[in-house]
Computed example of a mutant assay.
Amino acid sequence: MLLQRVLTAAVLLPLLLAVIFWAPSLWMVAVFAAVGGLAAREWAALSRWGASRAVQLIYAGLCFALVLLAWQAHLFAAWWLPTLLGLALLHWLWVGWALAGYPQRVRPCVQSRWGMAQGLLLVVPTIVACGHLQAQPDGAWWLLFAFFLVFAADVGAYFAGRRFGRHKLALQISPGKTREGAVGGLLLCTFWALIGVALFGLAGFQALGFVVLCAVIGVFSIVGDLFESACKRIANVKDSGNILPGHGGMLDRIDSVVAAMPLFVLGLMALGLA
C-alpha cells in the first residue's frame, strides 16, 4: 500500500507542476475541471440520488461544464468571483455547524437532493479560484504555496497525532484524528505561512493578515477532511473511489483542497494580494 501511494504521488506531482507552471490558465482550468468531474462522479456515487451510473456520468459532465462557464463569467464580471467564493465560505461555515451535529445534520448531504447542489459547491469555486490565482503575477508560485499549505496541515496533523495524540478530535467521524494532531497541523501551517511572508516579500498588515489567513485555512482544511469522512461513514464506504492506487478516489485526495482553496483566494483578495 505504501509503495503504491509513493508511486502514484511520483507520477502525479510532476504532472501537477507542469500544469501549474506551463499551462495557460484556461487549459489549467480545463484540466482541473476534468479532475473535478471525476470527484463529482464519486460524490454522486456516495449519494442515494446518484446510485445510477448514468446519473453519475451526467453529473460529472454538468460539473465540468459549469466550471468552464464559471471561469468565463469571472473573466467578464468583476463581481462574479467574490460572490462565488463568498458562497463557498457560507457553505463551509455551514459544514462546520453540520459536523457539530453529526450524523443528523450531515445525513441530508448524501441522502437528499441537496447533495446535488452541494457537490457543485465543492468543485466549482475551488477550480475557478485556482485559475484566478494562477493567472496573477507569480501566480503559479502562489498556487503551489496554497497546495503545500494544505499538505502542511495534513502532514503536521499526522506526525503530531502519532507522537502526542491523546484526545480524539471527532471520534464518531474519524477515530484516528486527535486534537493534538490538529494543533500540530495548525502550527506547521503557521510556520509555512512565515516562509510565505519571506518568499513573497510581505510586510506590515499584509504579513500579519497572511499568517492569520494561513492558520484559518489550516482549520478549514481539517473541516474538509472531516466532512468527506462523515459523508463516507453515512454512505458506509471506506474510500470515495479507487481511481488512484493506494490513495482511493479523487475526492479522497482533494477533500481538504476543496475547503481550503476558495477561502484562501478570498482571503488573498481581501488582503489585496490577488
Results as ranks from 00 to 15, higher is better:
Ala182Arg: 05
Val211Gln: 13
Phe76Trp: 14
Lys168Ala: 15
Thr190Leu: 15
Asp239Ala: 09
Trp192Tyr: 15
Pro24Glu: 02
Leu69Trp: 12
Arg166Ile: 08
His91Ile: 12
Leu194Gln: 00
Trp142Leu: 11
Asn236Arg: 14
Phe151Ser: 13
Gly36Ser: 12
Leu68Gln: 01
Trp22Thr: 15
Leu133Gly: 06
Arg253Val: 01
Ser221Asn: 08
Ala170Cys: 10
Leu171Cys: 03
Leu271Ala: 09
Ser174Glu: 07
Gln206Val: 12
Asp255Pro: 09
Cys214Tyr: 04
Leu16Val: 15
Ala146Glu: 01
Asp138Glu: 13
Gly131Glu: 06
Leu122Arg: 01
Lys238Met: 09
Arg5Asn: 03
Gly176Cys: 11
Gly50Leu: 07
Leu121Thr: 09
Trp141Ala: 10
Glu180Pro: 04
Ala70Met: 09
Thr8Gly: 12
Met269Ser: 15
Ala88Trp: 00
Phe205Lys: 14
Cys109Asp: 09
Gly209Thr: 06
Gly196Lys: 07
Leu251Ser: 04
Gln172Glu: 14
Phe145Lys: 06
Phe205Gly: 09
Leu12Arg: 05
Thr126Met: 13
Ser47Leu: 08
Asp255Leu: 04
Gly37Arg: 03
Thr190Ile: 11
Leu271Pro: 12
Val67Trp: 01
Leu120Val: 10
Gly50Asn: 09
Glu228Ile: 01
Ala60Thr: 11
Gly249Met: 08
Gln56Met: 01
Ala78Lys: 08
Gln172Ile: 10
Leu169Pro: 08
Lys177Asp: 06
Pro103Cys: 05
Leu69His: 01
Ala9Ile: 02
Cys109Thr: 07
Leu26Ile: 09
Gly224Leu: 10
